[in-house]
Structure formats: structure tokens, C-alpha cells
Simulated assay, not measured.
Amino acid sequence: MLTGDWISIFMALIATASAVVTFAVFRASTDPLVIVYAEPDLARPSIVNLIIKNIGKGPAHNISFTSDRPLPCEAFGIGEPSTVARAMSSGPIVTGIPFLAPEQKLSLTWGQYGGLHKYIGSEPIKISATFRRSYKSRMFSRKLSSTTCLDIQTFERSESSEHGFGPNIVKEMKVLNKTMKCLEDHLTSVNQTNHENT
């Protein structure tokens, strides 16, 4: 082959690679990406929320979810309860979501560490989300998917697994109340002594 032929082939390869990179950048800047994860609720200590979020750059349509085993629902209990929570039978994880805008998220009250750990155990639940791009053209509307793991052991020894802010306040208030009672008794005793001396 002539040198000119090799140059032509090389230029064609560069053009092809450039087109692939351009398409990949375009996809990254326009595709949705829906994930599911657990997150502590900062406004309600000890509560763990289940978050569904579109972290991609484009809107997601017709979102549905599958998991390798059922998810728990309302699994409450800071310590492990005596009974196991029921399986999730309603809500967006079960029924799906028609639309999520970029960076939009749904937050579901999932439970507390003890109740969730009692149900899930040490083996994470794998959950997959399937969704479509927003393009009207069928050529660009093929299904996309993502898989995440829900592992409650991540929260062991965290604020979510401890008694939390609310119960700690109650405990501190009881100690304070006991101290105030002792102080009140002491002041009453001192007043009585002073009254008797006068």
C-alpha cells in the first residue's frame, strides 16, 4: 500500500474515534441516571430514608424497579425489634415513577437501624432501576438501567443506629430534673434550719 493510502486509513480511524467520543460526551450530558440509596434523616434523628434520585443530566421517563429480594417497609426500631417488618407492597418502588427531572429526588421514610437490620441482615439488597430517555424518536428512546446496593450495616454505630437526639434529650432532662430536685430539697432544708434558728 502507498503512504497516501495509510494516511487515508489513519485519518478515517481518527474521524471514527472522534465521532465515538463526541457521542459518548453527548450521552453523558443528556442521559438520565436513576439510583436508589439510603440516607439518614437529619431532621428526624435515628430515621433512615430511602432516596430515589435522578443524578443524570437528562429527565428520566417510565422508571421501574426490580430487586433480588423484597424491600422492607416501615421497619422501625432503634434496637432490633422482636418482629420482622413487612415487605414493601406499595409506593414508587413497587408501582414505578412516570418522570424524574435531572437532580430531582423522592424521599421515603424507610425505618430505623434496628428494624431495617432485622429485615435486611448482613447481605445487601441489590435494586435495579430501568428507565428511558426523554427523546421522542424511538431511535434514541431505548431503555437504560442502573444497579445499586442497599446495605443497612453502613449505618452501624452511626447516629441512625444509636438512641438518637430525641431519647438523649429525655435522658439528659431526667438527670437535670433529679439534680434540680436534690437542689430544691437542700434549699428547703436550709430554709427550715434558718427559720428554726430565728
Rank of each mutant, 00 (worst) to 15 (best):
D151P: 00
G114N: 08
N62T: 04
I120M: 10
S18E: 06
M11A: 15
V175W: 10
S90M: 03
T179N: 06
I127H: 04
W110K: 06
P32E: 07
D185E: 06
S64Q: 07
G164E: 04
S82H: 15
F23N: 11
T193D: 10
M139E: 06
K118V: 05
E172M: 09
K171Q: 12
S141N: 11
V84S: 08
I63H: 03
T188E: 05
N177L: 10
P72R: 02
S67V: 07
L42K: 12
G56M: 00
D185N: 14
S64M: 07
S18P: 01
D5E: 11
S89N: 13
K143H: 01
L33N: 12
L144C: 04
E74V: 01
E184L: 08
L42M: 06
S90Q: 07
K53A: 14
L144I: 03
Y113W: 13
I120N: 03
I169H: 12
S107D: 08
F10L: 14
L13T: 11
S8D: 09
S82I: 12
G79Q: 09
V36E: 01
I55A: 06
N197V: 07
I35T: 09
N197F: 13
P70G: 02
G114T: 11
S189I: 03
F155K: 00
V34Q: 03
M180F: 06
I14Q: 13
L42V: 09
S8Q: 13
P81F: 05
T30H: 13
G96C: 04
L100G: 06
R86M: 15
T16Q: 14
G4D: 14
P167D: 07
N62A: 09
K181Y: 08
